[in-house]
Simulated scan of single mutants.
Amino acid sequence: MKLIGSTASPFVRKVRVVMAEKRLDYQFVIEDVWSDDTTIASSNPLGKVPCLIMDASEAMFDSRVIVEYLDTLSPVGKLIPQPGRERAEVKTWEALADGVMDAGVLWRLEATWPRRADGERSQAWIDRQRAKVKAGIAAMAKGLGDKPFCSGIHLSLSDISVGCALGWIGFRFPEIDWRGEHPNLGKLYDKLMLRPSFADTAP
């Protein structure tokens, strides 16, 4: 398998962490989708990463689709429960974390995209996305409470998704003091960073 992505993308990191936890072999191909000479559209018509290329040259994209598929490839470290309430809970955690990352990406693009003049940037849009990021992080902290992991007592895709979101927010928006506001999330992230899968994929 070949994974096309960037080291800074939190969605790519989610896939890489799952790959590591599942002990799957793959080739990592760095791609800058914002470059004028990017070739990502030949694999993903949406021009986004991550994109997983299988042995038969078939492409799979969207991190949620990819990690669901990867979890079926090996019995090692099952990360997504079987269909039912527990599975829905894990996928809801993933949706929450992805939503935080989506809002953060929109915030950053509005504030920094070089092809938009300063006068064209919308502070109201930036504020709206920032509010989503902060509300999402607060919801993560409330949902985690004093539990050792987001969904029960073992690592799952819930924790991987939340960890990737928090790591990226800390990387791109260091002014957001999510650790100070939510110590339980800081404790969870520190625990995740002890795992090679997280330590080796930090943005």
Rank of each mutant, 00 (worst) to 15 (best):
E86G: 00
Q82S: 12
E68R: 15
E89Y: 08
D71N: 10
E94T: 12
I53F: 04
P81W: 08
I53N: 00
V90D: 04
I80R: 03
W93Q: 00
R85P: 11
F61K: 04
Q82G: 11
V49G: 01
S57T: 13
G77P: 09
M54I: 13
P75K: 08
A95I: 07
R87G: 05
V65E: 02
E94Q: 15
L79K: 02
F61R: 02
C51S: 11
A97Y: 01
E68M: 09
L73R: 13
A97Q: 02
L52Q: 08
P83L: 05
I53E: 03
V65S: 09
P50K: 04
L70A: 10
A59N: 14
D71I: 09
V49S: 03
L96T: 04
A95D: 13
E94N: 10
V49Y: 02
E68P: 10
R64C: 13
P50W: 05
T72I: 14
M60Y: 06
D98A: 08
G47I: 02
S63A: 13
L52P: 05
A59Y: 00
A56R: 14
K91Y: 05
G84C: 11
T92W: 08
L73N: 06
E86C: 03
L52F: 11
E58A: 15
T72G: 13
T72F: 13
G47M: 02
A97M: 00
Q82P: 09
I80T: 03
L73A: 06
K91C: 09
W93M: 02
G77M: 15
G84V: 07
V67P: 05
K91T: 13
M54C: 14
L52S: 05
V90Y: 03
C51D: 04
